[in-house]
């Protein structure tokens, strides 16, 4: 007698990820799919892939999806959620998408307390376009557009999304996690689950920032990439829960739509 202990989540299609070896997207996709299955919400989920490496996420997620233009995920999510309040809406965004071109849409969706969930992949570079500087690129980090390292005088500083967004009264739940270790993966799944629960319970805006390895553009091996997150990246972007108002009960005005 054999017992099945591991299988493809219902909310993932039978497709092989196109992501590079060691990339965090595959893990994050799987975790989101597992959470959707476990919360039994696939029937009413509408997801929004970003522009970036995860642009083809609709080839992997077996849930309803609509692509957003670069950075506009939270605006599109707002339209979906307000027009169809019984749907469960998540926007999946990279660092350029959320913290550069789409910072206005992201910040204002958070500030309005839209009852949506944002999965934010922070890999400190622009992956899809070939490893250019991201708003979250570390100081001194070399990218194709900061060939001698990010210089704070010329290029500014890494944008700390969780720190900034947690100050907004509209945000209910916000946690920064990483998928560079089994323990980190478990913690990330818990955080994602809590974020979706927050939405299901009508509590308001939730955002999970995931520090995610990009071995190809970091020019490190997958193992060294995971180590770099521990040694360098998480020093600039400390892990932890930045805000948790889920215990405070239903937010007033949340049911606005």
């Amino acid at each position: 007698m054999s017992k099945k202990v591991f299988s493809r989540p219902r909310s993932l299609k039978e497709a092989v990820f196109h992501y590079c070896p060691g990339c965090g997207h595959s893990i994050a996709h799987r975790l989101v799919a597992e959470v959707i299955d476990e919360l039994d919400i696939r029937s009413r989920v509408i997801g929004i892939p970003p522009a970036g490496c995860a642009v083809l996420a609709y080839n992997y997620f077996d849930v309803d999806m609509i692509e957003a233009q670069h950075g506009r995920g939270p605006a599109t999510a707002t339209g979906i959620k307000r027009a169809r309040p019984d749907s469960i809406v998540f926007s999946y965004q990279g660092d350029g998408d959320l913290a550069a071109i789409g910072i206005a849409e992201s910040l204002h969706a958070a500030n309005r307390g839209e009852n949506i969930t944002v999965i934010f992949i922070n890999n400190a570079c622009y992956g899809m376009t070939g490893g250019q500087m991201a708003p979250t690129t570390m100081l001194q980090q070399r990218t194709t557009t900061t060939p001698s390292g990010r210089n704070n005088i010329l290029d500014g500083y890494p944008v700390k999304v969780s720190e900034i967004f947690s100050r907004l009264p509209g945000v209910t739940y916000l946690e920064r996690v990483t998928v560079n270790s089994p323990a980190g993966v478990n913690k990330t799944k818990k955080a994602i689950k809590k974020a979706f629960r927050c939405q299901i319970d009508g509590l308001g805006f939730s955002l999970i920032e995931i520090l995610s390895p990009c071995p190809t553009n970091w020019k490190l091996s997958p193992v060294d990439s995971c180590k770099w997150i521990d040694d360098v990246m998480s020093k600039e972007f400390p892990l932890g829960v930045f805000k948790d108002n889920t215990g405070a009960g239903k937010k007033t005005g949340e049911a606005a739509p």
Partner: peptide, 26 residues
């Protein structure tokens, strides 16, 4: 009925995209 004063014209058009995708007249 939903009315949103958006943060920008860009956000507004993308909000109506989302709502249109769910079948609303926008």
């Amino acid at each position: 009925g939903v009315f949103i004063q958006s943060e920008s014209e860009i956000a507004a058009i993308h909000m109506i995209i989302g709502a249109s995708a769910t079948g609303a007249r926008v």
